[in-house]
Simulated assay, not measured.
Amino acid sequence: MLTPSDKALVPFVSVDHMMQLIHHVGLPAMLRGLSTYIADDFARWEQFDKTPRVASHSAEGVIELMPTSDGETYGFKYVNGHPKNTSEGLQTVTAFGLLADVDTGYPVLLTEMTLLTALRTAATSALVAKALAPRGATTMAMIGNGAQSEFQSLAMMAIAGVTHVRLYDIDAGATAKCAHNLADTGLTVTTCTSPEDAIEGAQILTTCTADKAHATILTDNMVGAGVHINAIGGDCPGKTEIAPGILTRGDIFVEYPPQTRIEGDIQQLPDDHPVTEIWQVLAGQAQGRTSDRQITIFDSVGFAIEDFSALRFVRDQVRNTAFFHPLDLLADPDDPRDLFGMLSRAKG
């Protein structure tokens, strides 16, 4: 544990410590806790600095910085998205994040965020599904069974009341992996051989594919009235999953319109197409689902405030625990004006 005199030492949560923390808290409790922090920060949305993430795009993928501040604490996440990585034995998405004290500018937490991003993405999806999905929804189609699929499924069970998951991926091995990992979790799991099979009887349709392409995972004729679509795979320019016809038939909910219009499925629509910011629904300032036949679409690309919430949650959880390393990250000269002197003394 760090004391107030240890300001030059930054708590660092490694991958190993993050895994220990998750098992210590319990995965369902971790997902519920993250959703609570996200909901709390969405309720004070207007207090935050907001900007579309700063992205460096290439033919292979994207590297992004996602910053925000509530005036007291600053946070950012570094994250990449490289669909080709899986074929090379690498993660499609990796990330780390930082919290800092606005008053001093000193970092107060540095942490891995590959696992944490998977958790916060799933927690956000389930939080929104709880608000927008048909009443009593119990079945989700999980189309795309890669690294995010288990987290999505378990969050929907822990937060939104889902009991059945129907899995489909173009790679049957990915579906088998997901089904194996979800065994003995309390979910009823069905493996499917087509997207049409997967959505049979599902009230929640989650799409989470990795290809950086204008794909159509859900065609217009596949989607009937009354479902909630959780579209999380379209998350950069040139990458979509939902047919435009579905988008024009449904009511679309987004995190931050200036970012989603660039990166989300709604990049296929005119810039003036109406959308609702999801924070307004969660704060009671806008309507969500209004009828049993309504199609609701959460066009989620991930936003910095969700990462800020996740970082706050981890900071609060690791206090008074051993789930971090004190990291010697900041120079701490005896005289703050004599940085050179500190360097000179280190020589001998």
Rank of each mutant, 00 (worst) to 15 (best):
G161I: 06
G161Q: 04
V162Q: 04
H164K: 13
V165R: 10
R166P: 10
R166I: 01
L167D: 09
I170S: 08
D171K: 13
D171H: 15
A172Y: 06
G173Y: 11
A174T: 09
A174H: 15
A176I: 13
A176T: 14
K177R: 15
A179M: 12
H180G: 02
H180F: 11
H180W: 14
N181P: 00
L182Q: 09
A183P: 08
A183I: 04
D184L: 02
G186S: 11
T188S: 13
V189T: 14
V189C: 09
V189W: 07
C192N: 11
C192V: 02
S194I: 07
S194M: 01
E196I: 08
E196Y: 00
E196V: 10
A198E: 06
E200T: 10
G201P: 02
G201Q: 03
A202Q: 07
A202K: 01
Q203W: 00
Q203G: 12
I204R: 00
I204T: 00
L205K: 02
L205I: 07
L205D: 02
L205Y: 00
C208I: 13
T209G: 04
A210L: 11
D211C: 06
D211A: 15
K212T: 05
K212M: 05
A213G: 06
A213V: 08
H214Y: 12
A215H: 13
T219A: 15
N221C: 08
N221F: 05
N221Q: 14
V223K: 10
V223Q: 01
G224K: 09
G224E: 10
G224R: 06
A225G: 12
A225M: 12
A225H: 12
G226R: 13
H228G: 09
H228A: 09
I229E: 05
I229G: 01
G233W: 09
G234I: 05
G234F: 01
D235C: 12
C236R: 13
G238S: 07
G238D: 07
K239D: 03
K239M: 09
T240E: 10
E241T: 11
E241Y: 07
P244V: 05
P244K: 10
I246H: 05
L247T: 02
L247V: 01
R249D: 04
R249Y: 09
R249G: 06
G250I: 04
G250N: 03
D251A: 12
Q259E: 09
Q259P: 01
T260K: 00
R261A: 11
R261V: 04
E263A: 13
E263S: 09
E263G: 02
